[in-house]
Computed example of a mutant assay.
Amino acid sequence: MNRNTFTESLTKEGFPDAVVVTREAGTMDVHEHQFEAKALILEGELHIRVGDAERLYQVGDVFHVPANKAHSERYGPNGVTYLVGRK
């Protein structure tokens, strides 16, 4: 998906303005957010693990994490940059 299409979809779904997030290579242990997050990968890659299932997201992919959903994150060898809406 491209950035403009993604931003339009966030607006239609009621997400406030999106922000760009950059993470260096590494991991974030299991955690959860009090907000729903939907993001477009702009650079690098991100692995998200929910329970026993892990999924890889690369440039152009969109990930969605519901509010209060326990998950862990692993950032690719060059880190990751994504555009994220939170509500």
Score class of each variant (00 low, 15 high):
V21A: 01
V21W: 09
E13Y: 00
H64D: 11
V19D: 15
E36F: 02
A67N: 03
L46S: 04
S72R: 02
I48L: 08
P66M: 09
S9V: 07
T5P: 08
R23Y: 12
Q34I: 14
E8M: 11
D17R: 13
R86P: 02
F15D: 08
F35Y: 15
L83S: 05
A25T: 11
F15A: 02
H33I: 09
P16D: 09
V21Y: 10
L83F: 02
A37S: 12
V30M: 14
L10K: 06
V62Q: 07
K87P: 01
M1K: 09
N68H: 15
A18M: 04
L83I: 01
M28S: 15
R74Y: 06
R49E: 10
V21T: 07
D17Q: 14
R74L: 06
P66C: 04
R49K: 11
P16M: 06
E54K: 13
G76D: 00
G44C: 04
D61I: 08
L46A: 07
G51S: 04
Y57I: 07
G26F: 03
H47W: 15
T5V: 13
A53H: 14
N4H: 14
V20K: 10
H31S: 05
E32Q: 15
P16C: 07
F35D: 13
F35A: 12
L46W: 09
